[in-house]
């Protein structure tokens, strides 16, 4: 047998690559057991071309905000950590922190001390989606910026990219900090980023987002692309502002002041 060590190693190497690559190729080519045609959206689902929210800050009190925050955090199993490694989907800020570019120190007393509801802006040009290396965060056709917790590698590039501080990272296991688990919704695990999802799981069942439902009309949620929608009517008849519009991300949360 005229085979020297070099040739043997070459053949062994190639066979190993072929063996490893071959099985994964076969796996990829294997037909999915569930055909795409077998799945469909829930017919009861609320749909829109571009979901948006209008926050009528004139109608909002501290108590209203607290109720909304509680409703959201309870049904989504958002942990209550309370350190600088906290997790939050929706919270309040003062005007000067919510709109830091305004820099108007003589803004009216009412506005100055009013709570402003902060949440993911579900931007039309989201910077977080642009930077995500795994498509774990992505924009749905209806405009919602969504997270796939199964795919997130926890690189936190999205947190650096989001100009609205909307994202939180699970530095540790969140479970011990979830007071009362909602069995209808998952928690998250350590090492992934999370944020408000405009309640996609509720929209899919025909329900309004949790915060909107308990807002007594202070939050309006609807289709920005439909000129007759409630959000468009509210924007037509009131002066509204958005957070940091000069960054070009086109936030879809509007504030009536």
């Amino acid at each position: 047998m005229g085979i020297n060590r070099r040739e043997f190693l070459k053949i062994a190497g190639i066979s190993a690559v072929a063996g490893l690559g071959g099985t994964s190729a076969i796996d990829l080519l294997r037909r999915a057991p569930v055909e795409a045609s077998q799945v469909s959206p829930n017919p009861k689902a609320l749909t829109a071309k571009r979901w948006a929210m209008v926050v009528d800050t004139r109608k909002l009190t501290e108590a209203d905000c607290k109720r909304m925050i509680e409703a959201c955090h309870r049904i989504h199993n958002v942990p209550d950590i309370g350190t600088k490694q906290e997790v939050k989907w929706i919270w309040t800020e003062e005007y000067k922190h919510a709109f830091p570019d305004d820099m108007n120190e003589f803004v009216s007393d009412e506005v100055k001390h009013k709570p402003f509801l902060m949440l993911c802006n579900h931007c039309d040009q989201p910077a977080c989606v642009r930077v995500c290396p795994t498509k774990a965060t992505y924009k749905r056709a209806d405009g919602i910026v969504m997270m796939d917790m199964h795919r997130c590698i926890g690189c936190r590039f999205c947190m650096a990219a989001c100009p609205f501080g909307a994202r939180s990272f699970n530095f540790g296991d969140p479970r011990p900090y979830v007071k009362e688990e909602n069995p209808k919704y998952p928690t998250r695990m350590r090492g992934v980023v999370e944020k408000c999802t405009f309640c996609t799981e509720r929209l899919a069942e025909g329900l309004m987002p949790a915060c909107v439902e308990v807002s007594n009309g202070a939050l309006i949620f609807g289709d920005l692309d439909d000129p007759n929608s409630e959000v468009r009517q509210a924007l037509r008849s009131n002066y509204s502002i958005r957070r940091k519009p000069n960054l070009g991300t086109q936030p879809c949360v509007y504030y009536i002041v």
Partner: peptide
């Protein structure tokens, strides 16, 4: 038999269908 052999694959497909495509109903 299919569930025994393929439930992990089905769960993965469901996961992607629900989370990424917003399809939540499965017709068996």
């Amino acid at each position: 038999a299919l569930m025994q052999a393929e439930h992990m694959k089905i769960l993965n497909d469901w996961r992607d269908a629900v989370v990424r495509d917003g399809n939540r109903i499965y017709v068996s």
